[in-house]
């Protein structure tokens, strides 16, 4: 158990977390300590509970047991420090609004009751759009965006929150090369600014290139820490089991002395 004082230094601390759908545990007894300024990939097979972990951290799902602290306090008290990028398939993109308006939604929480977004929010949204390379799409209808553009718009909406901790659910899922580059650039920007980022990721091949830290998850937390220490074939095998056979080649690069 980590002391309260130590917990205050940690952007995300998860202890003994268990989450269940009806009777089936989706996450079981998960511990995780994310240190400040780290870029962490969350990897694991389908149904490993990756998205559930993110959703439980931000209170969208209720844990059956365990606790989650953001800089030593429950999420409810630290909400403004955390920005969330949901899976883009989670919304109806035919909603009548444009990109600028969508990104401005990231300021709604800070605005408070009854207040409308104004020029300041507009400038913040435009700056965030520029950061993801979407400034020319500001007045574009969101139904007319490609999958990659949708993803970047969601990313800009989180950036506009200017949070300390970013939680991203599969941002690289099915995006084009331009978008992938833009997301990687944003991740680097965030790291440089000392922010902490947790990214649900499915492409094992790019983990060492994009991330410094990794959590290997399959209902239980198999391992977590710096990529060069825990992203080993042995750990991947215990995470993915037999399914790993398809993936061994890129992973061998990480084995000490493999070459």
């Amino acid at each position: 158990m980590i002391s309260r004082n130590d917990a205050r230094q940690l952007p995300v601390l998860v202890e003994d977390l268990t989450v269940a759908y009806r009777d089936t545990p989706v996450l079981w007894d998960v511990d995780l300590a994310v240190s400040e300024g780290s870029l962490m990939a969350v990897v694991g097979p389908n149904g490993a509970g990756k998205s559930t972990l993110i959703k439980t951290i931000i209170g969208l799902m209720r844990p059956s047991a365990g606790r989650i602290l953001i800089y030593g306090e429950p999420y409810a008290r630290q909400r403004k420090l955390v920005a969330y990028v949901p899976q883009r398939s989670s919304v109806d993109w035919d909603f009548p609004t444009n990109v600028l308006d969508l990104v401005t939604m990231g300021r709604y929480g800070a605005l408070g009751w009854g207040k409308r977004p104004g020029a300041r929010e507009r400038d913040q949204a435009l700056a965030a759009l520029e950061q993801v390379g979407m400034e020319q799409f500001a007045s574009r209808q969101i139904s007319q965006l490609s999958g990659g553009q949708q993803q970047r718009a969601f990313l800009a909406r989180a950036l506009v929150q200017d949070a300390q901790v970013y939680l991203m659910d599969e941002p690289f899922q099915g995006v084009d090369a331009t978008t992938e580059r833009a997301i990687v650039r944003v991740l680097q920007d965030l790291k440089r600014a000392g922010r902490t980022v947790l990214v649900v990721h499915h492409d094992l091949e790019t983990v060492p290139a994009y991330f410094g830290h990794v959590l290997l998850l399959n209902v239980r937390a198999v391992a977590s820490g710096p990529v060069n220490e825990v992203f080993t074939q042995a750990n991947l095998r215990s995470t993915y089991g037999r399914r790993l056979d398809l993936l061994t080649e890129p992973v061998q690069a990480m084995e000490p002395g493999a070459h």
């Binding site: 959703k55 931000i58 209170g59 969208l60 909400r79 403004k80 955390v82 920005a83 969330y84 949901p86 989670s90 919304v91 109806d92 909603f95 609004t97 939604m105 990231g106 709604y108 929480g109 605005l111 009751w113 009854g114 409308r116 977004p117 909406r157």
Partner: peptide
């Protein structure tokens, strides 16, 4: 009128609306 942006965001993306403290 009072809940204009709340209603809009909750209609569009309820999960995200919650993270905005709504």
């Amino acid at each position: 009128t009072l809940f204009w942006k709340e209603f809009k965001l909750v209609s569009f993306d309820p999960g995200y609306a919650r993270t905005q403290g709504m």
